[in-house]
């Protein structure tokens, strides 16, 4: 079992490292050793830095939205007296529903001709063009901003917020009722019980969930590709999308792998820093 895992997890990384040192045209795979040239090229690419920036925006934005909505939902479900099962079924459905179907629904609802959400927004004057395409907002001080990235963040959050919800819900269920009873006897209000019991007990799980969500969202490929293929232009091209586009559209396999390796390093450094700063696994143990 170690073997299989090593085979499929370690081998590709090593392979990617090795491939990233070569120039490999995808159509006729002839490996030409070029040393670090691919990396040099990566860091010179404008679209690399752009993708890095957009990827970070996407990651931070998604994580924040998901944390807020997910936590809110978990607390509400935990407090509900009736209809709990109904709402949690919806939550688990959106966890298990294939991303592609979320995409299909989103494309349909945002369709400029027949989409219900598009028309709703347009009638409020929120946008005119296709939200995942040409629509922009003119923000004072920043200028024209494409709506595509925020839209992708929100659509993604519809599906992925429930990850936080489920995580937090599992944690909430594990807090013994007697803690709340003891606090009630002390005279604590609901808010005080939340602050002094729920939140500290939830903190570890939240940190872990935030770490996982950040990693997942930074790595997110499917929903962005399905919705926009990285477009319009490069407006929604994050790092994984860039790696894919360079590999299969630019037919530069070595370059694509170089981007993948950079991504991996970036994440590894981020994760280590995170673990050092918060030590979430220890929090979870207690």
């Amino acid at each position: 079992m170690l073997f299989l895992y090593t085979l499929i997890a370690i081998l590709p990384v090593g392979f990617a490292l090795w491939a990233s040192l070569h120039r490999i045209p995808l159509t006729q795979p002839q490996w030409t050793f070029v040393g670090l040239e691919n990396y040099a090229q990566v860091f010179e690419l404008d679209r690399f830095w752009g993708s890095m920036w957009r990827g970070t925006l996407f990651m931070v934005g998604s994580t924040l939205v998901q944390l807020a909505v997910g936590l809110w939902m978990a607390l509400v479900i935990n407090r509900m007296e009736r209809g709990q099962r109904l709402l949690s079924t919806l939550v688990f459905t959106s966890y298990l529903i294939p991303t592609i179907i979320v995409t299909l629904i989103a494309l349909f609802m945002l369709d400029p001709f027949v989409g219900v959400l598009h028309q709703f927004g347009a009638s409020l004057g929120l946008w005119e063009g296709y939200v995942l395409g040409a629509a922009t907002w003119n923000l004072p001080g920043i200028g024209e901003v494409s709506l595509a990235l925020p839209a992708v963040v929100l659509i993604g959050s519809w599906k992925f917020s429930v990850f936080i919800t489920i995580f937090a819900l599992a944690q909430l269920r594990s807090i013994p009722n007697r803690f709340y009873e003891a606090a009630k006897i002390c005279g604590a209000t609901s808010w005080e019980m939340f602050r002094d019991i729920t939140l500290p007990r939830l903190k570890g799980a939240i940190l872990v969930a935030v770490l996982l969500r950040s990693v997942f969202m930074f790595n997110k490929y499917d929903i962005i590709w399905q919705l926009t293929q990285g477009g319009p232009g490069y407006e929604t091209t994050t790092m994984p999308i860039l790696a894919y586009r360079e590999t299969f559209e630019g037919s530069a396999y070595g370059l694509g792998n170089a981007i993948a390796v950079v991504m991996f390093c970036f994440l590894a450094v981020g994760a280590v820093a995170y673990f050092v700063a918060f030590n979430p696994s220890q929090e979870v143990d207690t």
């Binding site: 996982l212 790595n219 994984p240 792998n257 993948a260 994760a271």
Partner: peptide, 11 residues
């Protein structure tokens, strides 16, 4: 957990 599907899938 840190492995991006893309990082794995490309190689």
């Amino acid at each position: 957990y840190l492995f991006s599907p893309i990082v794995l899938a490309l190689p």
